[in-house]
Computed example of a mutant assay.
Amino acid sequence: MSHTAHIPSHRKPRRSASKLAVRAGVAGGVLSTLAMAGTASASPAEPVAETTLEMPVLNLDLGAEVSSAVTQAAENTRLAAVEGELNAQEESARTGAAAEAKQAKEEAQKKADEEKKAKDEADRKAEAERATRSSERTKLQSASGSDSTAQGSGTVTAPATGSAAAIVNFARAQVGKAYVSGGTGPNSFDCSGLVQAAYRQAGISLPRMSQAQSSSGTAVSLSALQPGDILYWGSRGSAYHVAIYVGGGKFVGAQNSSTGIVERSLSYDKPTGAVRVL
């Protein structure tokens, strides 16, 4: 063993190359800085202009924008729903109006059909009653013998005078005009409307309906008729038809819509009874 082995070595440890490089770089930088400082101190000082760059400020409130977008979307949805509901209501209204119009048309047609049916039934009934009266007249004529001839021709042959003449002349002047239910002249009449208008020529006011007219004045026999007497068909007080006796075994009456106002013989449709108002 060496006699110096127990003495610690004073040799410095070897530095790594990387550390040496770092140290060299630091030293170089220091020296460069010092050199620049010396140069700066030797040169006259020049003012250095400072430039400040103003950056744009972005004011982005993303929360508010999102909220506004959500609100707008909700409003658009609500408006679309309202428009859809209005369209549905409009379509429903159109459908309802069409249904109501169809129903009204059907009801009007039904009413017209019912009125036509009622009119046809009334005409049929009148024809049946006339046929019945004709049959009854035939039986009465067979039973009464010669008296039926007097009833068929009437017992008055003298021309009408005074108020009776005014009534008869007016009634005959209306022959050929139309029969209209409810008609009171001057262009059309129903049976009681004609009798009422004829008596008005003599200054006499009669009730409007045939039932009341058949109850006016005094009842007279069909064998003792005089011009101007009111003939009626049916029961007195509930007659369904009236006419005016004009003499010579004839009467003038507004018969029906088919014949209009006509002058006929009593044998055409023998009345039930007669009343005298004059």
Rank of each mutant, 00 (worst) to 15 (best):
E100P: 00
D113I: 05
R94Y: 06
R124A: 14
S135N: 13
K110L: 08
E121F: 06
E100H: 01
E91T: 13
E90Y: 13
Q109G: 05
S134A: 15
A93I: 11
K119M: 10
V156D: 14
S92I: 01
S148V: 00
E107R: 13
R130V: 04
T155G: 14
K111I: 10
S148T: 01
K110G: 12
K102S: 04
V156Q: 10
A122R: 15
A122Y: 09
T149Y: 05
E90F: 15
A101I: 04
K110R: 14
A104T: 13
E91Y: 03
T95C: 01
K111F: 07
A118E: 10
A122F: 14
K117T: 13
A108S: 05
A112D: 12
R137E: 07
E115A: 12
K117W: 04
A126W: 08
T132D: 11
A143G: 01
L140Q: 11
R130N: 12
K139P: 01
A112Q: 12
E107N: 14
R94W: 05
K102P: 00
R94D: 13
G145A: 09
A122E: 10
T95V: 10
K105A: 15
D123S: 12
R124N: 06
S92R: 11
K119Q: 12
A126E: 08
G145E: 10
Q151M: 15
S134C: 01
T95M: 04
K110F: 06
Q151E: 14
A112H: 05
K117E: 09
A108D: 04
A97N: 09
S142C: 02
Q151G: 03
E115S: 09
A126P: 01
E127N: 12
S144E: 14
E90M: 13
T138Y: 08
A143F: 03
K125V: 07
A108C: 03
D120P: 02
S134I: 09
A143Y: 00
D123L: 15
K110A: 15
K139M: 02
K111V: 13
R94K: 15
A112F: 08
A104Y: 09
R133C: 01
A150Q: 10
S144R: 09
K125G: 07
Q103G: 12
K110I: 00
A158I: 05
A143L: 03
R137L: 15
S153D: 02
R137H: 11
K102F: 00
T157V: 11
G152A: 12
T157N: 07
T155C: 06
A104S: 12
A98T: 04
A128P: 03
T149K: 03
Q141P: 00
A131R: 10
K111C: 02
E91V: 08
G154W: 01
R124C: 04
V156Y: 12
K116M: 11
K116S: 07
K125I: 09
G145Y: 04
Q103E: 13
G145F: 08
A93P: 01
K111T: 07
K119G: 08
G96K: 00
A99V: 00
S146W: 06
D120I: 07
K105V: 06
R130S: 09
A158Y: 06
K139N: 09
E121R: 08
R130E: 03
A93L: 12
G152W: 06
E127A: 15
D120Y: 03
E121C: 03
A97P: 01
E121W: 09
E90H: 13
A143C: 01
T157M: 06
R133T: 14
A93K: 06
K116L: 13
A99E: 08
A99R: 03
E100M: 07
D113V: 05
R94I: 10
L140N: 06
S134E: 05
